[in-house]
Design a protein around this nucleic acid. Structure first.
Ligand SMILES: [Mn+2]
Ligand SMILES: [Mn+2]
Ligand SMILES: [Zn+2]
Ligand SMILES: [Zn+2]
Lengths: 135, 135
DNA sequence: GCAGCATCTTAGAACAATTCTAAACTCCTT
DNA sequence: AAGGAGTTTAGAATTGTTCTAAGATGCTGC
């Protein structure tokens, strides 16, 4: 299982990022449990309430760098709020409208047939399915 | 064809909105041609360069009211930017990544099979499919 | 081990998108 | 026409995010 080790300094180095104290702390919070969906704000609160305080700017920097390195993926579901997803595999999302909660579901049971060809001069990059639900 | 009349004051009244000069001007720009995807900013520029200047706050108010009244739908594709869509029927979107262009495609040829049941205590609200493409 | 240097973190300012405030105005009813 | 609720507006405020530039820190080569 590549990319699943708990040696966070090593994983960061492999991603081309220096394993600083702050990045290691954030990586631990993000990757040592199951998959998660976080916002910069929620992760900042979380890391503050742990031993290691990290500035909000660093949380934003790290999330953007982790995403650029392929360790995270960004999910856009609501205006004015970015979610970062530790599950980088193929999957889709339930979005619970009032509270803003995101739930994964695997894409391998979902069949999307009949998609039209991409517009002239463009290549397919990703298909996002967001199932919006309400209470 | 209901909702397709060019009598904008009447359509606004039917939606429970007073047909003010500003709202009528915006409705004209939005609904008298084919379907459109606008941002508040783009619509504001457009209405300014026409005869009738409308403040940006009013553009935001009108877009939100039109959406709440079901005349528009809001599409979230990119962080920090809301698109408003005059096509309120069932359809999905191509999103061209670098330039931010949105293209409709009808949902009636697309089959989505195998969607899991909504999480406990929630009802399905809408399924959004965003096909991200790049040049 | 330590110097040297690039990289990184940080507080705070800046920015971009959107909403709020409250005073002036306008549509509608009478 | 007058009255009043609803609307518009400029500008301030708020929110989410990025930038700046000064100090701190991790790495490499000695
Ligand atoms: Mn970003
Ligand atoms: Mn809104
Ligand atoms: Zn996910
Ligand atoms: Zn559309």
């Amino acid at each position: 299982m590549p990319g699943t080790s708990l040696d966070f300094p090593a994983r960061l180095r492999e991603a081309g990022l220096r394993p600083t104290r702050q990045r290691v702390a954030l990586a631990r919070l993000l990757f040592e449990g199951g998959h998660r969906h976080v916002t910069a704000e929620s992760l900042h609160i979380e890391v503050k309430s742990a031993q290691m305080p990290v500035s909000l700017a660093t949380v934003y920097n790290a999330l953007n760098q982790f995403r650029d390195a392929g360790l995270l993926r960004e999910v856009v579901v609501a205006p004015g709020r970015s979610y970062f997803d530790t599950n980088t595999g193929h999957h889709h999302h339930f979005f619970v409208e009032p509270d803003g909660a995101l739930h994964d579901f695997p894409s391998d049971k979902v069949t999307i047939a009949g998609l039209p060809a991409p517009p002239k001069g463009t290549r397919l990059s990703r298909v996002d399915v967001i199932v919006r639900v309400r209470r």
